[in-house]
Design a protein around this nucleic acid. Sequence first.
DNA 1: CTGAAAGCGCTTACAG
DNA 2: CTGAAAGCGCTTACAG
Lengths: 342, 342
Amino acid sequence: MVNIGDIARAAGVARSTASYALSGKRSVSDEVRARVQRVALEMGYTPNAGARALATSKAMVIALFAQFMPDEFPPAMMQYILGVANTARDAGYDILLSSDPDGPKALKRITDSRMVDGVVLLNVAEDDDRLPVLRAASQPGALVGLPVDCTGVDVFDLDFEEAGRVMLEHLYALGHRELILVSQPEHVVERGGAYVWRLQNAALETAAAHGITLHAAFSPSAQPEIGRRLHDLLDAYPGATGLLLNNEAAAAALPTVLHERNLSAPEDLSVIGRYSDEFARSFSLPFSSIESAPDRLGRMAVRQLVRRIEKQVPEDAPHVVRFVSPEFVDRGSTAAPPRDRH
Amino acid sequence: MVNIGDIARAAGVARSTASYALSGKRSVSDEVRARVQRVALEMGYTPNAGARALATSKAMVIALFAQFMPDEFPPAMMQYILGVANTARDAGYDILLSSDPDGPKALKRITDSRMVDGVVLLNVAEDDDRLPVLRAASQPGALVGLPVDCTGVDVFDLDFEEAGRVMLEHLYALGHRELILVSQPEHVVERGGAYVWRLQNAALETAAAHGITLHAAFSPSAQPEIGRRLHDLLDAYPGATGLLLNNEAAAAALPTVLHERNLSAPEDLSVIGRYSDEFARSFSLPFSSIESAPDRLGRMAVRQLVRRIEKQVPEDAPHVVRFVSPEFVDRGSTAAPPRDRH
DNA sequence: CTGAAAGCGCTTACAG
DNA sequence: CTGAAAGCGCTTACAG
């Protein structure tokens, strides 16, 4: 492989001059610069990443930690990953993707080895066991998801409280008085998926304030369990006129369930989900939803991370906790409750 | 950060001895080895990846190139990525994920910089423009997807010809004589997504051999276009009693379309898709299918790649082209055609 | 069994 | 404006 010594020799200059001519970090005569650049191009020179990282202490790589739990829903994850990967690339960084089930161990190894300049954590739990490791690391970190303790990291998440309120207010205004909220599997909550509570509690409070009966329930996130669960819930609460879904897999399962019960939205049942527009389009989900903005969250996390890596923000600048406002995307699946129900 | 010099000093030995004690690459007295290992553990030593890569010419990283075209279907990609990432981790390699739209350029930069020891290409087109770059690289490459020219790389793919035949034979045996095959968008074919032709041509041949009328059509891969397209096809061929789907997004859209037409599978229409079981479970797709085995393909590609990287296979060992046999997964969506149709 | 030294390919003060 | 040299943190022949 051609290295900078080859370039220097071919251009008839010292290796340092070749390096400077290529990086522009000190002035070089126009003639020499042009010659070095031409030679580098001709010989197809690409700097050795390990050597550069060793010399500069900069790897130009961002670590992306995604956890894939057995009851997690991988397709929804893809959009966060793409948001992160695309933003990183635009900023000049490559992505090291870790799906190691032992997050803390992998995180320690990867940060300690200096393979990466910064870390993005996806799927952050309330009391995430990767956080102590990340705080101890010398690289900055950005999270998608809200932990209890946000010290030392930048945090980005959907405003799930507001999402819960928006869902409720929307259906209240249409005249609904009994609703079902379907959340993620209980496992997700037990692992510390706080967003489940955040949305649910806000929804319950809003319901109480308006005198709405809200049945809050967990649901599995894979077939055939989801379908059964949705049927059970609809059987258990025949008076409910609206369904709120904080569970992407349940949203994906709903069309079939409605079909099986011969129900239509919004004629028989109003439905609001919480997922991305991309997701709705991919899976042909006809339900109005709260946009979960995975691409935007991924982008925000990387942008802030890059700012810290490149010290465009003072070393001691306070860490941010930023919420994306939920946006209601109307796909026509909500209406006034049917007259023959109360 | 603690480096090997710190370990050596703390253990009272030379850096080379510390290195050997940790790597086991030459014999070290039990006492010294134990001491070095203890110190390394206590001080939380992790080797600097850049320095090690520079010294050994091994990065312990595999590059994973996934292309996300506008009309590609990201969720299906996630499973290939997971198959690759998990297998790589088990073999001791990290994953560098590239989603750069300019594949050839990114591939050249990443291989030339020696950041990676090998490359996995996903989404390989017939005449993939990343292949010349990969062949010129000094690292080995493994593909998921079959190009026209397989020289110099190991290739893994589903046997799409056989998949087409299996679909047809299955419905022929049940008595069907007029079918519709829904493929990927025409763009995918134009880009060289050869698997579309491979399945379709084999299906057409099998149909001809049995005197079956097979209507082969392209379909978009996002809403609302897919839904319309499926309706149009069902309108255009009212005599068709079976639907074959070589398009994940169309499969995801079908339940809603069937609902809108008040049709059920298999009572009114037999349906066979081509996607993974994981996909079917995630999206509650009730259709029988040809298993696309993304995790298995990803695993095979990485295993072979690692064998080449680690020279467990002779330098000049012939490159392999391996097809995974399609497996029919019965979810009960096929039956004899309804009596009131012919 | 162990140590001193060279070398991997860069970047960047230090000199001139 | 340019060059010679040191140094980043490893590994691995070379000596003993």
